[in-house]
Design a protein around this nucleic acid. Structure first.
Length: 330
DNA sequence: AACTTATGACTAA
DNA sequence: TAGTCCTAAGTTG
């Protein structure tokens, strides 16, 4: 259930735990067995993210000695990429020894060994990391639980992939073809001030007769936005999700681009998808209503808008639940 | 045991 | 627009 920020988080965890070394790969569930066998023993070279797509680059051990480089002068082009799209409910589960530090919500990194139990992380149910309790050197990956499509591990950590919508080995040309079909990614470094990306998004969106709520979910126009960012970015922009793209000025669409960049970076920094500016969150937080202080309109049907008190409305748009404030958004 | 829900996206009609 | 795919957890009967 990830949007672009979650994919970046998962990618950095995978980079932290595995980049630069070889992995033992398998498909406990069996549905990726042939490809996993090709990955087995390869070195994980790098991880790329574009929107909600993740590409893990592998090289046969002994080839191209770069350290986690995906691009650049003199680097070999990676011919073997694992292309992963988590879809609606795919996820990763991590576990590791005492050198793997759980930061919560699926983010982990490695440090020199520290005493077990010192880290009191707050694992999110779905993307939690296992705690590093076993001493380095004695740790072994736990038995896979559930439908683990793909598993890779080294001497310190294991990553299990569960329920991906797409999971395939592809060539570099195929990777480029996938990325070519995607619009600019608001989480790309420098995207917020990237005049070209903002302009590309704004002009494309402005040319559409479709509703802006559909447009920003179109991955070929802007890559990485999902159902929560759609709802809350349009709320913050003050734009009704039903307004047609051509009826939103290019100027406002450029502002929307910047706003989406900021919003997604807020989620990235927070470690989970949070859109609410802490200054606007209900204080004290409503007990048993965590979402009221996490999101502005998403999942808040019938509740009062945090800004104007008008009940939040809900409708279906392209078979996804859409939420908006009829007063703040015009 | 059956049904519902979830931060997605494709194809067929 | 409806159907399909991928999985697990929660609710309902």
């Amino acid at each position: 259930m990830p949007e672009g920020d979650a994919i970046r988080r998962l990618a950095s965890t995978i980079t932290e735990l595995f980049a630069g070394g070889t992995v033992v790969a398998s498909s406990p569930q069996g549905r990726f067995a042939h490809s996993a066998a090709l990955i087995d023993g390869c070195r994980l070279q790098c991880v790329r993210v574009h929107g909600k797509h993740m590409f893990i680059g592998f090289v046969t051990e002994g080839e191209g000695q770069g350290q986690g480089q995906c691009e650049g002068e003199g680097e070999p082009i990676l011919e073997r990429w694992m292309h992963i799209h988590l879809g609606l409910y795919g996820w990763w589960r991590f576990n590791g020894d005492e050198t793997v530090v759980d930061e919560g919500y699926g983010v982990a990194h490695r440090v020199p060994p520290v005493p077990a139990g010192e880290w009191n992380g707050h694992s999110e149910t779905r993307w939690g990391c296992g705690f590093g309790e076993a001493a380095a050197g004695t740790w072994e990956p736990p038995e896979p639980v559930g439908q683990v499509r793909f598993r890779m591990y080294n001497t310190h950590a294991v990553a299990d992939l569960i329920g991906p919508n797409r999971c395939e080995l592809i060539t570099d040309a195929e990777r480029e073809a996938v990325e070519a079909r995607l619009g600019p990614d608001p989480l790309e470094v420098g995207a917020r001030d990237d005049e070209e990306a903002a302009d590309c998004f704004a002009r494309t969106a402005h040319a559409k007769k479709r509703a802006i709520g559909e447009i920003i979910m179109d991955q070929s126009i802007i890559a990485g936005v999902g159902n929560i960012y759609r709802a809350d970015s349009l709320f913050l922009a003050g734009i009704s999700p039903h307004r047609k793209g051509k009826n939103v000025s290019v100027k406002r669409l450029k502002e929307l681009w910047v706003l989406i960049c900021d919003l997604m970076n807020r989620g990235l920094a927070a470690g989970r998808l949070e859109t609410m500016d802490p200054k606007e969150a209900p204080n004290p937080p409503l007990v048993g209503d965590e979402e009221a202080s996490r999101w502005y309109v998403y999942h808040r049907t019938g509740r009062p808008c945090v800004r104007c008190g008008t009940p939040i409305r809900e409708a279906l748009m392209q078979n996804r639940r859409l939420f908006w404030c009829p007063s703040c958004q015009r």
